[in-house]
């Protein structure tokens, strides 16, 4: 069904004068990707899961405190952080991983590339479309959960909450880039999805546990722990959110205190640029590989 619709639309893309301009062609692909995605099960399921969990976290962490709930924003945000770090990379990685590999497996990639558009346009168009989908999904989850906060906790931390949403979008875009890179190098969807899950597991659990173990075993100094933690986009995301909320990383113990003391006001920028790097570099690499590769 979807393939049929896609084919029909591709015909229209071909006939469209828009396709001749770089962004026009890209946007046509983005729209197609977006519509395919929001009509698909994974989008609905992820959005539903994220919304329910986010609302649950907001609700539970504020129950039983009566009129004192307004002070609970920090803890709610901390609970949301945990949830975001678990769910959002999974969403973005698998969505990215399925994109090119899926087309390749279904045989539609050949058809796509036969259109009067460049490979770069196809890839970036797909990225934009999926990015739009993810942003849409996150906005629904955060929007409903903000409703719960407004009701239970009042208007405290509106700015911090908005920044939490912004950093989460950045994290999603970074993870989507990694997913696209996986997709470009994988021949089959199953391989791509497997690889995505492996990367997810590594970023969420393995690297943190590994860093914990090495910190204990090798008695790493605080600057070494901080530097290594910075490599993980999830840690960079977490620190960025906490810096934004508390204006300091003191809650993260000696390592956080070191980071706050050494980098001061520029810490938030360092962390944000780490995320931006994680977005730009894998996507650039994916574009290069996809454009260079003769394979379909």
């Amino acid at each position: 069904m979807t393939t049929l619709a896609a084919t029909a639309e591709l015909n229209s893309i071909e006939s469209s004068a828009l396709a001749r301009s770089f962004t026009g062609g890209m946007i046509s692909f983005a729209r197609r990707e977006f519509r395919d995605a929001i009509a698909s099960k994974w989008f609905v399921l992820y959005t539903l899961a994220f919304t329910v969990l986010a609302v649950g976290v907001s609700f539970l962490s504020l129950s039983g405190v009566g009129s004192q709930g307004f002070a609970g924003f920090g803890r709610t945000a901390a609970g949301l952080l945990n949830l975001i770090m678990l769910v959002v990379p999974l969403m973005a990685l698998t969505a990215g991983a399925g994109s090119i590999a899926g087309e390749r497996e279904r045989g539609t990639l050949l058809y796509l590339l036969a259109q009067p558009v460049s490979r770069t346009q196809v890839l970036l168009g797909k990225y934009l479309g999926l990015a739009g989908t993810l942003v849409c999904s996150l906005c629904i989850g955060f929007g409903v959960s903000a409703g719960v906060l407004a009701w239970k906790a009042g208007g405290v931390g509106v700015g911090a909450y908005a920044m939490l949403v912004a950093f989460t979008v950045l994290l999603a875009l970074a993870m989507l880039s990694v997913g696209m890179l996986i997709s470009v190098v994988s021949r089959k969807t199953t391989v791509a999805t497997g690889l995505a899950l492996f990367i997810w597991l590594s970023l969420v659990f393995v690297s943190d546990l590994g860093l914990m173990a090495s910190s204990i075993l090798f008695k790493l100094r605080v600057q070494e722990v901080f530097g290594l933690a910075l490599l993980n986009p999830l840690q960079a995301f977490k620190m960025a959110v906490i810096v934004n909320m508390n204006a300091s990383l003191d809650v993260l113990g000696p390592v956080g205190a070191y980071a706050s003391l050494t980098f001061g006001g520029s810490l938030a920028w360092i962390l944000a640029s780490t995320l931006v790097l994680w977005m730009v570099v894998p996507l650039g690499l994916a574009t290069l590989l996809f454009a260079r590769r003769g394979t379909v």
Binding site: C136, S137, C139, G143, A146, A150, V156, V158, A162
Partner: peptide
């Protein structure tokens, strides 16, 4: 402390979606 501003943010996010 009213929840109005947070409510506005909620509505803004949902309308963005």
């Amino acid at each position: 402390i009213g929840g109005a501003r947070m409510g506005v943010l909620a509505v803004a996010l949902l309308s963005a979606a």
